[in-house]
């Protein structure tokens, strides 16, 4: 479904990504793990079209993405929940979640998509009329993921869904991600904490200083002490 092949990205003359290659198949949960500044967010933002790679190819369902405006990438069917949630404070929770049904009207009916989002995060229903500025960090994260899901996208890019949240709210987010996976949606999840990687992840890529240094099953990474040292920050 999504394929990145030998992607190189510079930001302000600094090389951030160096030949990144990864793939996410339909319905797969793939994790991109790395320390802060390793290049996880840059990878997701490059897929979304916020950054243009210097070289390499990115395809989504065989369609090349580089050079495509971000809104077209979203309309093709890639949902994005950024690390900072970026919930619209001037809109209510309900309006935030409904918005992708206005911008990408094709596919499932709007009502069904919004209901699905509430089904994944039932707690949001009671906050439906609340403004985006009146939410806690965990609630904002839920809205951000629910909103990406309401795009009716076959692939979701989730940037650090557990980052900065209280331990009490992390299980709710994890359950939501598990529900999305059960719906058959593909997920590419960036994560800096190796302990937040779900056991059922199909594949794991470890990124360090803009390079993929490991790819394989989540269980396999634990047998590679040199990689574990990098992602636990003890290297």
């Amino acid at each position: 479904m999504l394929s990145l092949n030998d992607i190189t990205v510079d930001i302000q003359n600094s090389r951030i990504l160096r030949g990144i290659s990864l793939a996410v198949g339909a319905g797969e949960l793939v994790c991109l793990v790395g320390r802060n500044g390793a290049g996880k967010t840059t990878t997701l933002r490059t897929v979304m079209g916020f950054l243009t790679p210097l070289s390499g190819t990115i395809t989504f369902n065989s369609q090349p993405l580089p050079g495509m405006p971000t809104y077209r990438v979203a309309q093709l069917g890639i949902g994005y929940a950024p690390e900072e949630s970026e919930v619209f404070g001037d809109l209510t929770v309900e309006e935030n979640i409904e918005m992708p049904t206005w911008t990408r009207p094709r596919g499932r009916p709007a009502l069904e998509r919004v209901e699905l989002a509430y089904k994944v995060f039932p707690k949001l229903r009671q906050y439906a009329k609340r403004g985006g500025t009146q939410l806690s960090g965990g609630e904002r994260k839920m809205v951000s993921i629910a909103r990406a899901l309401a795009l009716d996208a076959p692939l979701l890019l989730l940037d650090e869904p557990s980052e900065g949240l209280s331990p009490a709210i992390i299980p709710t987010i994890s359950e939501g991600i598990a529900s999305i996976r059960k719906l058959g949606r593909g997920i590419l999840m960036a994560e800096s904490n190796v302990h937040h990687i779900p056991d059922y992840a199909d594949r794991l890529y470890v990124i360090e200083r803009g390079e993929i240094i490991f790819s394989g099953k989540p269980g396999d990474v634990r047998t590679r002490p040199e990689v574990m040292r990098v992602i636990t920050g003890t290297a």
Binding site: Y71, E86, F88
Partner: peptide, 17 residues
Amino acid sequence: RILRATAENRDMSAALG
């Protein structure tokens, strides 16, 4: 509503189509 969302955060609006 789309105008207000775009006024607040144009990049996130684009990421929502």
